[in-house]
């Protein structure tokens, strides 16, 4: 008996695992009740910036503007019907993310692969965990995930670490690095892209967390085959960042009744 399989969930992902760990009510709303929301400018700023960076890595002689134009074109297309008030300000950051991301990552050379699907099995977890790596450098034995943010974090977050643990394990224990890119350097600094590497201990601990969360998800979903009954057990935390989208918040209030 597997709750995940009862609900037709064929695989998990780091984002689903993190979502459940952060707010099970949000997970149930989106994954079981299929609540949808319009794309946000922040989300596509990251995706478009990665497109520009990856293009620049695969074409080392491509001018920066070419990479930026590609990214902006993707951003504009994906958000052509967006009403997000941050559309312009997020767009304005994209060139900086690409510039400073390439400044750092071109030092690694041309990647072996990008957006490679990876999969791992975890003991007692009835479905595999899959993911898509941003960059793999087989020559260096390194996986790199690109993160764009307006602020530079001082360490790898728990959520990113779980993602990294899956990637690193799937790639036969490659080193796992995160490239955190800002749109511009802070005062007195030349670099706006910091690359942090997970230690072996951090990977092991994070992988253990991934497994434990997945097992708890399975147990929770096995409590009932009625998703309404599962929802009735949960309390959403509307103050959390997962609920920042107004459409999702509205759907949450409708489902959870408060």
């Amino acid at each position: 008996m597997s709750g995940l399989k009862d609900y037709g969930i064929k695989h998990l992902s780091p984002s689903a695992i993190n979502q459940y760990a952060t707010d099970p009510a949000h997970y149930v709303l989106q994954r079981l009740f299929n609540a949808k929301s319009d794309a946000s400018a922040a989300m596509f700023r990251g995706i478009a910036s990665e497109t520009g960076i990856v293009h620049g890595l695969y074409h080392p002689k491509a001018p920066l503007q070419e990479c930026v134009d590609l990214a902006l074109s993707e951003y504009d297309e994906k958000l052509s019907f967006s009403n997000d008030p941050k559309y312009e300000s997020e767009r304005a950051n994209i060139p900086g993310f690409i510039e400073y991301g390439l400044l750092e990552l071109r030092q690694y050379g041309v990647p072996t692969s990008a957006q490679e699907r990876v999969e791992i099995e975890l003991p007692d977890v009835p479905v595999p965990v899959i993911g898509f790596t941003d960059l793999i450098y087989e020559e260096h034995g390194i996986v790199i995930d690109i993160k764009t943010s307006l602020r530079m974090p001082s360490s790898i977050s728990d959520e990113h670490a779980r993602q990294g643990a899956v990637y690193s394990t799937a790639k036969g224990n490659h080193a796992m690095r995160f490239a955190y890119c800002k749109p511009k350097p802070s005062k007195g600094e030349a670099r706006a892209c910091n690359v942090y590497e997970m230690t072996a201990e951090h990977i092991a601990q994070s992988l253990s967390e991934v497994r434990e969360i997945a097992l708890r998800m399975d147990r929770f979903l096995s409590l009932s085959k009625d998703k309404e009954e599962l929802a009735a057990l949960l309390v959403p935390n509307f103050k959390g960042y997962l609920w920042s989208n107004p459409q999702i918040r509205e759907a949450g209030r409708t489902l959870y009744g408060f």
Partner: peptide, 21 residues
């Protein structure tokens, strides 16, 4: 614990790498 920036490997990949994209 706070993380420190790690530098890129000293020798970059050769252009002979076959990208999979």
């Amino acid at each position: 614990a706070p993380s420190s920036h790690v530098a890129a490997p000293k020798k970059a990949a050769a252009n002979g790498n076959r990208p999979v994209f």
